[in-house]
Design a protein around this nucleic acid. Structure first.
Lengths: 225, 225
DNA sequence: CAAATATGATAGTAATACTATTAAATTAGC
DNA sequence: GCTAATTTAATAGTATTACTATCATATTTG
C-alpha cells in the first residue's frame, strides 16, 4: 500500500535551498524531524534555531551549516511537502483513464487534510500539513520573492499547479482560466482549512463538509459551462 | 462623485486595536500616512517603528503610544481597508435591484485593484491595496488568531464576507457553499493579484484578463448549476 | 496662566538572527 | 589502526529588533 511504497522513494527538493543536504546525515534528519514538531507547536514566527538546537540536543551553529536561515528551512519544508503531494497526485491518478474522474481525484489529493501519518522516514506529514496551512504564505509573501523565484525555490509548487491545470484542460481544453482555477484550488483549500479551524462563520467547511467537495463541485461547474 | 463623497465619512476601526485613536491627532495621521508608504516600500517584515519615526521626524516611543506593536498597526490598516471596501460595496450595490447584477457588481468591488488614489484624507488607497495583497495573510496567520478574533480584531473582514455571502444567497438561496465561495473570492482575488505580479505562469490574469472576470464567471457558474 | 496632556529624547533590556573562531568528536581512506 | 579530513559542539560576539521606563519639554485646554 501507499505507506510502504512511499517509504522507498526519496522526495527531491531544489538543491540551492540548503547548504548541506539534511538527508545526508543523522543530524540533518533530526533537524527536519524536530523543526516540523517545533514549528507546529510554537508557530514559525516564534521558532528559532536556538530553540530547535535545544530540542535536539545540538548547537545553533550546527543547524546553520544546513540552512542559512529559518526562512530557507521553511522553503525546504514547503518544497518537500509539495513534492510529496505531487508524487501522490501523479501516482493516484495514473491509472484513471477518464479525464473527469482523474481531475476529481487530483482535486481530492491537493485539497484533503492529511490525517494519517505516513511514517515517511522522519517526516510527520500530519503536522507538516498543518504547517503548510498556517505558514505557507509566509514563504513567498516577502520582498525577496522575485529573486528567490529566479533561484528556483518555488518550482515544485508551480509544477504541481501546472499538472492540475493540465488535467483541467484535459476535461475542457477551451476553458479560459485553467491556471487561475488551479492555483485557486490549491491556495483556496489551505485557506478553507484555516477558516474551519479559526473563522468558522465565513466557511461552510466543518467536520462533515470538506474543502474537497466544495472545490470539486466548483471546478466541474466552472469548466463544464 | 465617489471621491468627494468618501472624503466626508469616517471609516471606523475596532477600538481595541489601538491605544490611542490615530485619527484624533496630527501625529496619529502622519503615523498612518507614512506607515502605508513605508510598509509598501520595504515590506512589513522589514518595517520597524524606529524607521517610521525617522521618516516622520518623530520618536519611536511616541508611536508606541498609538499602537502597542507593529502587528496591531497592521491590524489597524487592514481593518481600515476592509471597512473602506465594505463602504464601497454597500454604496455601489444599493441601487441595483436585480440580484445577479448586484452580485456581479459586488464581486467587482472586492476583486478589483485600486488604481486611483481616492485621496481619502491621509490614506493612499493604491498603496494600501498593495499592502493588503502582500501582507494581509500575516495579520491572521499567527498563534494568537483565536484570542485576537475573540477581541474582535477581524470583525470588519468577516462582516464583508458575510455581506457578499448574503448577495450570493439572494441569487440562489439553495447554494450550499455560499460562505466558502464568498471567502474564496475575497482571498482568492488577492492571491491572483499577487500571482500576476510574481508567479505569472500559474495564473491567467494579466494586463487584460482580471481576477474580477475570473471570479464573476466562476461564481455565476457555481451558483446557477 | 496653571494644569493637564502629548510628544520627544535618552537609556536600557531581553531576544533575535545571525557570523566567527576554536576545540572536540566522528568518519573515511589507506 | 592511524592519519587526515570532515562534522559537530561550544563559546563569544555583533547589529538589530521590539519593546519598556523615565524624565524633560512642548502644546493644548479650562
Amino acid at each position: 500500500m501507499m505507506k510502504n511504497l512511499l517509504s522507498n522513494i526519496k522526495i527531491s527538493v531544489p538543491e540551492k535551498i540548503f547548504l548541506k543536504d539534511p538527508e545526508s546525515s543523522d543530524l540533518g534528519k533530526r533537524i527536519i524531524e524536530h523543526s516540523i514538531l517545533l514549528i507546529d507547536e510554537i508557530g514559525f514566527d516564534n521558532f528559532t534555531f536556538k530553540k530547535l538546537g535545544a530540542k535536539i540536543g545540538s548547537n545553533e551553529s550546527s543547524i546553520y551549516r544546513y540552512f542559512e536561515s529559518k526562512h530557507k528551512l521553511l522553503l525546504y519544508l514547503t518544497s518537500w511537502y509539495w513534492a510529496w503531494i505531487e508524487y501522490q497526485l501523479v501516482f493516484s491518478t495514473s491509472n484513471i483513464p477518464n479525464p473527469e474522474k482523474r481531475l476529481l481525484k487530483a482535486i481530492e489529493v491537493v485539497t484533503q487534510t492529511i490525517k494519517e501519518d505516513f511514517d515517511f522516514s522522519h517526516v510527520n506529514e500530519v503536522k507538516l500539513n498543518q504547517i503548510i496551512i498556517n505558514e505557507y504564505s509566509k514563504s513567498y509573501l516577502t520582498k525577496e520573492v522575485d529573486s528567490e523565484n529566479k533561484e528556483g525555490y518555488f518550482v515544485v509548487y508551480k509544477r504541481l499547479i501546472a499538472r492540475l491545470r493540465d488535467m483541467i484542460l484535459n476535461v475542457n481544453s477551451e476553458y479560459k482560466y485553467a491556471s487561475s482555477i488551479s492555483s485557486t484550488i490549491v491556495e483556496g483549500a489551505l485557506h478553507q482549512h484555516f477558516l474551519k479551524d479559526h473563522f468558522k462563520s465565513i466557511t461552510d467547511c466543518n467536520e462533515t463538509v470538506t474543502p474537497t467537495q466544495f472545490f470539486q463541485e466548483l471546478t466541474i461547474n466552472a469548466i463544464k459551462s
